[in-house]
C-alpha cells in the first residue's frame, strides 16, 4: 500500500497516549529498532514506551572475555566490546529501545569485566519474574547475592560452576528456587571437590531444588537427606552424582539387593521400579530415582530425590 493509493491516512500521533502505550507494547524488539528509524516522533515513542512481556532474556560475556552478548526476547545483540565504553554504548542504545520491559526468565552470566553498577543500570527498566545468575568465582557469587536484593519480587536461581565456594559463602546464599553446583572440572575422581554432607543438608533445607555434581555422603547421611526431604515444606528436588558402587553399598545397607523386585519392602523403603539402567524407590514421602545405576560397574549414577510424585528428569 503506498501513499498515492491511500488518501485518508490516519494521523498516528493524533491518537491518545493510551493507544500509543498499548500499541508499542505489542511491537517486538526487532520492529522497534526499525520503527525508531522512521521519524523523530516514532524514535521518541519507542524510547518512552513499554516493550511488553517476553519469555526470556540474557546477558553473557564471550569465553575469552573480549565481547558480550545480550538477548532481549526475540532479538540477539552480539559482538559488543566488553569494556566500559562498550557497555555504556549498549546501555545508551537499550535506553532508546524501551522505557520498560518484562521478562519471565532473565539470566545474568556474571563476569569480572561487568561491574555490579553496570548490571544495575542495565536491568533498571526490567521487571523479571525469575532471575538466574551464573557465577564462576567467589567474587561473582557475592555480587550475584548482592544483586538478588535488587529484585525482591523475583524468584531467584543460582548456578555455581568451576569453583568450590568456602563454607561461609554457601551459608550466605538467600533461599533460592534452584541452586545448581557444577564442580566436575575440579579434579579427577581421586581429588575432585565433593560437597560435604553437612553443607548439602543445610542447602537442601534452604533451597527448593538443589542440583549438584558430586556429594560426599555415606548411607547414613543419605538416609538423613531423605528424612529432611520427606519433612520439607513445598515441593523439593535434590539431584547429585555418586559412583554406582557406592550407591550399591547404600542400598545393601538399607536391605535392597540385586534380587529385590518391584513391590518389595526393605524397612521403610519400597521398590517401585528396577531394571538394568535404573532403580526407583519410595521412602516416606520421597521418591528416589537412581538413574544410570548398575550394581557392578563403577560409573556415575544420577541420584534424584523428590518429595512429590512426578517425572524425575535428569
Amino acid at each position: 500500500m503506498s501513499l498515492s493509493v491511500v488518501i485518508d491516512i490516519m494521523d498516528f500521533f493524533a491518537l491518545p497516549e493510551v493507544f500509543h502505550r498499548e500499541l508499542l507494547k505489542k511491537v517486538n524488539i526487532a520492529d522497534r529498532m526499525n520503527l525508531r528509524c522512521t521519524c523523530r516522533a516514532f524514535e521518541k515513542l519507542v524510547a518512552n514506551s513499554n516493550a511488553g512481556y517476553y519469555e526470556s532474556g540474557k546477558i553473557a560475556p564471550t569465553r575469552d572475555g573480549r565481547f558480550f552478548s545480550v538477548y532481549l526476547g526475540d532479538q540477539q545483540f552480539n559482538s559488543m566490546h566488553l569494556s566500559e565504553i562498550g557497555l555504556d554504548t549498549f546501555l545508551q542504545f537499550q535506553n532508546r529501545l524501551f522505557s520498560r520491559i518484562h521478562f519471565n526468565d532473565f539470566e545474568i552470566k556474571m563476569s569480572e569485566y561487568i561491574s555490579t553498577q553496570f548490571i544495575r543500570e542495565f536491568t533498571e527498566k526490567f521487571a523479571i519474574d525469575s532471575l538466574h545468575f551464573s557465577a564462576s568465582t567467589s567474587d561473582q557469587l557475592y555480587r550475584s547475592v548482592e544483586l538478588m536484593g535488587d529484585f525482591p519480587k523475583s524468584t531467584h536461581n543460582l548456578a555455581i560452576y568451576d569453583f568450590a565456594p568456602e563454607t561461609e559463602a554457601f551459608l550466605m546464599i538467600p533461599p533460592l528456587n534452584i541452586l545448581q553446583m557444577y564442580f566436575i572440572k575440579q579434579g579427577t575422581p581421586d581429588n575432585r571437590y565433593e560437597i560435604p554432607t553437612a553443607i548439602f543438608m543445610y542447602l537442601q533445607q534452604n533451597h527448593s531444588s538443589v542440583l549438584a555434581s558430586y556429594v560426599r555422603m555415606n548411607s547414613e547421611g543419605f538416609l538423613r537427606v531423605l528424612q529432611l526431604c520427606s519433612n520439607g515444606t513445598g515441593e523439593r528436588t535434590i539431584r547429585f552424582l555418586k559412583e554406582s558402587l557406592m550407591v550399591a553399598s547404600w542400598l545393601r545397607d538399607y536391605g535392597v539387593t540385586e534380587d529385590s523386585i518391584v513391590g518389595d519392602t526393605c524397612g521403610e523403603f519400597l521398590v517401585i521400579k528396577t531394571n538394568i539402567r535404573s532403580t526407583k524407590l519410595r521412602y516416606r514421602n520421597c521418591f528416589i530415582l537412581f538413574s544410570g545405576f548398575n550394581w557392578v560397574d563403577d560409573w556415575a549414577t544420577t541420584v534424584i530425590v523428590t518429595n512429590f510424585e512426578g517425572e524425575q528428569v535428569e
Binding site: S2, I9, C37, C39
Partner: peptide, 23 residues
Amino acid sequence: CKAISNTFKGKTGPQIREEWGVP
C-alpha cells in the same frame, strides 16, 4: 493495536515511512 503493530512487522524504516505517509 496489534493489527496496527503488525503493519510494522519486518518492515524497514523507509517502508514504514512510505506506508504511513511519514516524512
